[in-house]
């Protein structure tokens, strides 16, 4: 902090002006996001006829017809529900499986541990897309194609990054806490459940947030694995509107508003944590 103050004293006048200009330009640039999101939300309240002539301005009257139409007349509610189920179950499974894995990799010594650790990191380098065709055949044979369960399996299996975050966190924990519990006679699983999990709330929420964002927004996996109307997710629902947006011009704004609001609320509440998890795992890994 002291250093920063001194740095400011030395700073020359032109440097200050340039910095001011850059920050103005960046602020202007951020208006693009505000405009796009704001316009989408405003447009979702406009009537069908108003939207045709007035796509850019303030609505002359507010109506909820678009939302009603999207939710009650189309499959959108189903899509929303599918996304909620998919994300909740996947994040839960991922957190359980990856935290156990991370705990074992951080706190046990055994033969071949280093090998196992690098084995689990392979998934960071070779994305799941590369094996998607055999995966597709496999899920079809297991009758999991076109089910949310199939995707839950895939998202849970894609655990490299989460495991890395958990391992890094557990490695930083003092071993003495766990050792003392073990001496008291607690079994390994109880140590994990009663002692490790409660103190690892920060990392659990980080992993949950990051995987929430990724799964909620995923497009490719649902596109490949969920082709029936009843199982499609939110991103696919939005895509089917926007692929034919002239016919759905009034509905799409309402649909996007519904999809945007939860994610924006989460971002407002937890942006620091999302960023931290993302960069923490990346820089240390």
């Amino acid at each position: 902090m002291r250093m920063k103050k001194r740095a400011k004293k030395i700073e020359s006048r032109p440097a200050k002006i340039i910095k001011g200009i850059i920050s103005c330009l960046l602020v202007l640039y951020t208006f693009i996001s505000i405009y796009l999101i704001g316009m989408t939300i405003l447009n979702s309240f406009k009537t069908k006829s108003e939207l045709i002539n007035n796509t850019m301005g303030w609505p002359s009257s507010f109506t909820l017809d678009n939302f009603r139409e999207v939710i009650f007349e189309d499959h959108f509610l189903r899509n929303l529900l599918n996304s909620v189920i998919l994300v909740t179950v996947s994040v839960l499974c991922l957190c359980i499986v990856a935290s156990m894995l991370g705990y074992a990799l951080a706190h046990y010594e055994f033969k071949g541990k280093a090998l196992l650790e690098s084995y689990f990191l392979l998934g960071l380098m070779f994305p799941i897309q590369l094996g998607i065709l055999p995966l597709f055949i496999m899920l079809t044979r297991m009758n999991l194609n076109n089910t949310l369960w199939g995707l839950v399996m895939i998202y849970t299996a894609n655990l490299s990054f989460s495991t890395l975050l958990f391992t890094n966190f557990f490695k930083a924990l003092p071993k003495s806490v766990m050792e003392s519990a073990r001496i008291d006679g607690a079994r390994d699983f109880q140590v994990y459940l009663r002692i490790v999990l409660p103190i690892s709330k920060p990392v659990i929420s980080t992993v949950a947030l990051i995987s929430f964002v990724q799964i909620w927004n995923d497009f490719f996996m649902p596109l490949v694995f969920l082709t029936k109307t009843g199982v499609k997710t939110l991103t696919l629902g939005i895509y089917s509107y926007s692929a034919n947006f002239l016919a759905n011009w009034n509905k799409i704004f309402a649909a996007i508003t519904i999809a945007l609001i939860p994610i924006i609320i989460i971002y407002f509440l937890f942006s620091e944590q999302i960023v931290e998890g993302l960069t923490g795992g990346a820089v240390k890994g």
């Binding site: 156990m100 894995l101 689990f120 998934g123 094996g131 995966l135 496999m138 894609n158 490299s160």
Partner: peptide, 17 residues
Amino acid sequence: FIAPGFIMYTVFMMVPL
């Protein structure tokens, strides 16, 4: 602790690859 993750990861990530 390792088994569930190992099985999931192997079956749905590495075997397909």
